[in-house]
């Protein structure tokens, strides 16, 4: 599903430049649940953003579902994001003035799905993550674990091929972390390809494979 070959990424701030990725090779197969581990600042988020087409890379090759992702226009990247990718963030990133159901429905809005259909599907997904009765609540009225489950429902809304999660349990206590992981594993059980960035060993242990980043290179676990 995902193939990276020799991906490099350098951040330049003023006169300083920092090469965060120095030639990353890795592959993720369809239906896998993969963890990306590494110490803080090792470039995990950078890598995930590149995978998510939120950020560009300097050199190397990225193939998503067999298609080369080189030189995408903003518009094309947006289209691919909404058709192929679902995101889960550490800080949930729900839209504060929208209800849970509306948050979940938002990706479908950009897919031009009619409103009725959108709300039907968002309620279905909320039921799937066990939050149907919270559909009309605002994010501010929910706990961290609940917010992350809404975010996961939102990531699923557009029926993506891959879900990319950046420290999805980073802001949660261990019990709710566990609940979220159970949910992610269930989804993977249904066949969803998932890449989970984490720096917690317990979380990584629940995934099928761990890709370890160090000094901008993949240390272990690049392939199945």
């Amino acid at each position: 599903m995902i193939d990276l070959l020799g991906i490099t990424k350098t951040y330049t701030t003023g006169a300083q430049s920092l090469q965060v990725l120095k030639g990353v090779d890795l592959a993720v197969e369809t239906g896998e649940l993969v963890a990306i581990m590494g110490s803080s600042g090792s470039g995990k988020s950078t890598l995930l953003n590149i995978l998510g087409l939120l950020d560009g890379y300097d050199e190397g090759m990225y193939r998503l579902d067999g298609k080369n992702m080189a030189q995408l226009t903003e518009r094309r990247a947006a289209e691919l994001r909404r058709e192929m990718l679902g995101f889960v963030f550490q800080s949930f990133n729900l839209i504060g003035f929208k209800s849970a159901a509306e948050n979940v429905a938002l990706p479908l809005y950009y897919q031009k799905v009619p409103r009725k259909e959108r709300l039907r599907r968002s309620h279905e997904l909320l039921e799937r993550v066990g939050l149907l009765e919270w559909a009309d609540h605002l994010p501010s009225q929910m706990s961290g674990g609940q917010k992350q489950r809404v975010a996961i429902a939102r990531a699923l809304a557009a029926q993506p091929r891959v879900i990319l999660a950046d420290e999805p349990t980073g802001a949660l206590d261990s019990t709710t972390s566990e609940e979220v992981m159970v949910l992610l594993k269930e989804l993977n059980g249904d066949g969803m390809t998932m890449v989970v960035v984490t720096h917690e060993a317990e979380i990584a242990a629940e995934c099928q494979r761990t890709i370890r980043l160090r000094d901008g290179l993949v240390e272990t676990g690049a392939h199945v």
Binding site: F87, N93, A158
Partner: peptide, 16 residues
């Protein structure tokens, strides 16, 4: 800013 970023991540095009 964050809301706009989220929208972009969820597939909003620049035109949107």
């Amino acid at each position: 800013t964050r809301e706009l970023g989220v929208r972009r991540a969820l597939g909003a095009t620049p035109a949107n």
